[in-house]
Write a protein that binds this DNA or RNA. Structure first.
Length: 589
RNA sequence: GGGCGUGUAGCACAGCUGGAUAAUGCAUCGGCCUCCUAAGCCGAAGAUCGCGGGUUCGAAUCCUGCCACGCCCGCCA
């Protein structure tokens, strides 16, 4: 709790420096208490016991005794060598009601921190519908974008479009060379496309891609060789910046990308800018970059003229050669990525990438290369892949869960719950609530766990609508909304904070939680750990429920001005916090 | 074989810049709707923190060895 720390620190500094303990010795040790029941802030006194030649307990006893009385502090206690500070609830209430807690907005750039951040995420190959395996990237990335905005950073969300190379090449070739009949025949053993999505371009075109993959694997030898030759020449042309071929690629993938973006927008995910990989080939910066790399003293050349950097000299272990140019002179994906990053550094002063754990090595190579060129390396958030209980997901094989189907299912299941719980709502209302709840549940299910943890997607978990889920937070928010609506027309008493003795537990807990809100957000954004904020929102909602239990705002037709003011502040924090998690903060459910 | 990551109650998961009684949800068991939406609230039970060593006043957290799982080790993207 930074608010309290700022009040306590100067006095601690005075007391401790008199003993000869410098601020640097203890400052980082003054932390939020692990045991919430013991206080809000704790200083363990063990570290300086030996230098002071005094028992820890004696040190904390003495500090507790000589610590001055402050408005902000309810109690200072010494327990087993720990010095525990409890914030004064009346002081916390005052801080909250005097707007010392920042509410913010996750939807617009205020730039209040002065920090400019470019977050690149998703960047999935536009070759088929968005599936759950890719979803972790988009949800993680979009949540980071939102949380940075909520924190006050100037954020740009960027999608790097892979518009050249093999994957798009295969798609373009298939669309140009296979008839609908060919495709249907090749995919006859697969499940037919869902009726629901038959007119959605990404679902249509992925069938051409899948059919081509089957041909590349199973056609008779001559035909296979011919296909590889044709695709190879397309890919080759694209990598040399052939504008005509690149344009044909673009018309092949654009409808697919649009379909993917439509899916993502249902989850509230959107992008500020799209940058095409081919940009840096066409405008010559990649060629220029390769010449620059050639001149580095760690550069080497293979027998066939391919270029590489020996990153072993820069501490890379394992395979130390990083190839940036093929024998035929064309660039590689990673080379273009280096060029892209150099460009990005011109656009922003903080770069964040969201990448799957399979990109770790490549990200390291790109990072080391950037440093070799006197650029900083970007911050990278790696996540582990989402698996299905049946195993790994792949677009090529049938075992994928399409995001479109998942969201449809989520909406359907949420509808059932709403209909059961609120039989009085009409169909339209049920549908809109179910949409908000269903998509929120899916997002939250993914965002609440830390990214490096392996994740197995299970329907029953994604669609749990109970405590520990998005609807739990949404529900607490609707409670605050309905109180606000009710209080609107009624007469309110003046804002009078009750004395500590008469404050119920539900109130003090909520006050404490609200006062850590900004701290958690700050840390969440600094460390790119969205799950910390997600879990905090769960706690905030839980605390609000306790307040709801203990502190009736409206009683006998009269509004308690103080309780209402606190409720309103909590409502605003829940509202902006839900938006920060990409959850639609609906007012009724 | 090498590199990186993960391993915490039946399940899922937080804590990992060393600090007190390891937090939370699901599932299990018990209680609460004449009272601002019960998608809620209160309570009970449940953990050799993968295993072995080490450092420390103190280790889930740091070091080290081992085991299990995942990802990577293309002049692919």
């Amino acid at each position: 709790m930074k608010l309290l720390k700022d009040m306590v620190s100067p006095h601690l500094e005075q007391l401790l420096s008199a003993k000869g303990v410098e601020k640097a010795m203890w400052e980082s040790m003054l932390q939020p208490s692990r045991e919430a029941s013991q206080g809000d802030l704790t200083l363990p006194c063990f570290a300086f016991a030996s230098t002071l030649k005094t028992a820890p307990q004696a040190i904390s006893d003495e500090l507790a005794e000589s610590f001055p009385t402050l408005d902000s502090v309810l109690s200072v206690a010494s327990v087993n060598g720990y010095l525990n500070f409890k914030a004064h609830p009346e002081w916390l209430a005052k801080a909250i009601l005097s707007q010392q807690i920042k509410v913010g907005s996750a939807l617009k750039n205020t730039g209040s921190t002065g920090e400019k951040v470019l977050i690149e995420h998703t960047s999935a190959n536009p070759n088929g519908p968005f599936h759950v395996g890719r979803a972790r990237n988009a949800i993680l990335g979009d949540t980071l974008v939102r949380l940075h905005r909520l924190h006050g950073d100037d954020v740009r969300a960027e999608y790097y479009v892979d518009d050249m190379g093999k994957q798009v090449g295969v798609l373009a070739w298939a669309l140009a060379n296979l008839s609908e009949q060919d495709v249907n025949q090749l995919l006859s053993e697969r499940e037919p496309p869902t009726e629901r999505w038959k007119d959605k371009a990404d679902h249509q075109r992925v069938r051409w891609y899948q059919a081509a993959q089957i041909l590349r694997k199973d056609a008779e030898e001559n035909r296979k060789a011919e296909i590889e030759r044709e695709i190879g020449s397309l890919v080759h042309a694209s990598e040399h910046g052939d504008v005509e071929v690149l344009n044909s690629f673009e018309s092949a993938y654009t409808p697919v990308l649009e379909g993917m973006l439509a899916t993502l927008s249902r989850l509230g995910i959107s992008y500020d800018t799209f940058t095409k990989e081919s940009t840096f080939v066409v405008d010559g910066t990649v060629a220029q970059l390769m010449r620059t790399l050639d001149a580095l003293d760690i550069a080497g050349t293979a027998d066939n003229g391919a270029g590489y950097l020996d990153l072993g000299q820069r501490g890379l272990k394992g395979k130390t050669e990083f190839f940036y140019r093929r024998g035929d002179g064309s660039s590689l994906y990673a080379t273009r990525d280096v060029a892209y990053h150099i460009w990005k550094w011109g656009e922003s002063n903080r770069l964040v990438n969201v990448l799957g754990e399979d990109h770790k090595l490549q990200a390291k190579q790109v990072g080391l290369t950037l440093e070799e060129l006197d650029h900083r390396r970007p911050e990278v958030l790696f996540y582990s892949f989402i698996k299905l209980p049946e195993g790994k997901m792949s677009t090529r094989q049938g075992n994928v869960v399409f995001m479109d189907d998942l969201l449809e299912e989520a909406q359907a299941q949420a509808s059932e719950v709403v209909r059961e719980l609120r039989p009085e709502y009409d169909d339209e209302k049920v549908a809109s609530i179910a949409e908000a709840v269903g998509t929120a549940a899916v997002r939250f299910n993914i965002i609440k766990v830390s990214p490096e943890k392996g994740f197995t997607f299970r329907w029953e978990e994604a669609l749990a609508f109970e405590a520990g889920s998005a609807p739990f937070i949404m529900y607490a928010h609707t409670r605050a909304c309905s109180i606000a609506k009710r209080a609107q027309t009624l007469e309110k008493s003046s804002i009078q904070c009750p004395a500590v003795e008469s404050m119920p537990e539900g109130l003090t807990e909520l006050l404490r939680l609200m006062c850590t809100h900004n701290d958690v957000l700050e840390r969440s954004v600094r460390e790119q750990k969205a799950h910390l904020f997600a879990l905090h929102m769960l706690e905030l909602a839980n605390a609000y429920n306790g307040f709801y239990r203990d502190c009736p705002v409206v009683r006998d037709g009269r509004v308690d001005g103080f309780a209402f003011a606190i409720s309103e502040m909590a409502r605003r924090l829940m509202f902006s916090g839900l938006e920060g998690l990409g959850i639609n903060p609906i007012e009724e459910m």
